[in-house]
């Protein structure tokens, strides 16, 4: 090692030593959480990758390290649209995209509308603000079981209401077959919009009243005020909210599993339910791991495209 290299090393070591002396407590404090996250996040993630290369089933489960190594077989099976499972997998990805494409915008619009409403002054506003959060705080298992009850064909209130309104002539079968996606979407929107409303309302409250008053004096109508004054303030919240929603909806499990059960048929299969079934009912642990890794990659692509689009928009605005 040449002298200057040595010097540099010494300087680096000194820097690390100083960092350690200064921040010793920080490291000690963060250590439990760090070890915790390492054990519970990083270790499973690595094992997930290792499992996905193996043919792990109920017999080899006791010691997964002894399961036969089969290379990329699981990924090929999961990816290949020709096999039954591959076909169902891609269909499930399509299903969840359709589900998100309806649920997210509708939920956002309702949340935004209600947030604008709750930002106005009226008697009992605080109480109403608390009540609208009810769908959000009710446990998923409760919410979706109640909706499952409401969507029952013969005894459900949804069919009764639709019949009374004359929208249908015969009671529909909601939870099996072609209408089941609609049922899940309705329940998910009901459950999901208050969270958006909460964030948007917080965003609305950061807008200085003078700005809106100034716009009114300048003759801006309600729509112009919203479009050019209010909405720009809500943009950062909207971006975060949509990103969170894209991620959450891509991983949707509870609503489908509770309302439709673990094998809802190809029209309403979503990746999480499919993987859950393939792994814990058919005991194809390797295949399940491979499919969930593909899911992560797909989601990262979606998130990256989303973030890229935002950045492009931003640079165009500037």
């Amino acid at each position: 090692m040449n002298p200057s290299g040595m010097q540099r090393t010494v300087v680096a070591i000194k820097k690390y030593a100083r960092d350690w002396r200064w921040n010793r407590i920080a490291y000690l404090l963060i250590l439990p959480a760090l070890i915790g996250t390492a054990i519970v996040h990083i270790l499973p993630m690595i094992s997930s990758i290792l499992i996905s290369f193996r043919d792990l089933d109920i017999f080899s489960l006791q010691q997964w390290t002894k399961a036969p190594f089969i290379g990329l077989r699981n990924f090929i099976d999961g990816f290949n649209p020709v096999t039954t499972i591959g076909q169902r997998y891609w269909r499930s990805v399509l299903n969840v995209l359709i589900y998100g494409a309806v649920t997210i915008p509708v939920g956002y619009v309702i949340g935004l509308g209600v947030a604008l409403l709750l930002n106005k002054k009226f008697v009992g506003r605080t109480l109403v603000r608390g009540i609208v959060l009810l769908p959000y705080i009710l446990p998923d298992s409760v919410t979706y079981n109640v909706w499952r009850f409401m969507f029952q064909s013969r005894i459900g209130i949804v069919n009764k209401t639709l019949l009374a309104l004359g929208l249908i002539q015969e009671p529909l079968v909601w939870l099996v077959g072609k209408y089941s996606m609609i049922a899940v979407i309705v329940a998910s929107i009901w459950k999901g919009w208050p969270f958006g409303c909460l964030l948007l309302l917080a965003g609305l409250q950061t807008i200085p009243q003078e700005v809106i008053e100034a716009a009114t004096i300048d003759g801006a109508g309600p729509w112009q005020r919203f479009r050019y004054v209010i909405f720009p303030y809500l943009k950062p919240v909207t971006k975060t909210l949509l990103l969170l929603n894209v991620i959450w909806n891509f991983n949707a499990f509870n609503q489908f599993f509770i309302m439709l059960g673990s094998d809802p048929g190809i029209q309403t299969d979503v990746p999480s339910v499919l993987i859950h079934r393939e792994t814990f009912q058919n005991f194809h642990f390797g295949l399940g791991s491979a499919m969930s890794l593909i899911l992560v990659i797909l989601m990262m692509i979606v998130a990256a495209v989303y973030l890229r689009t935002l950045r492009v928009n931003k640079s165009m605005e500037e």
Binding site: L61, S272, T279, F285, S289
Partner: peptide
Amino acid sequence: MFPGVLFLIPYFV
């Protein structure tokens, strides 16, 4: 960001 099932399988195993 990651889906729950991604963790669930290795957890179980």
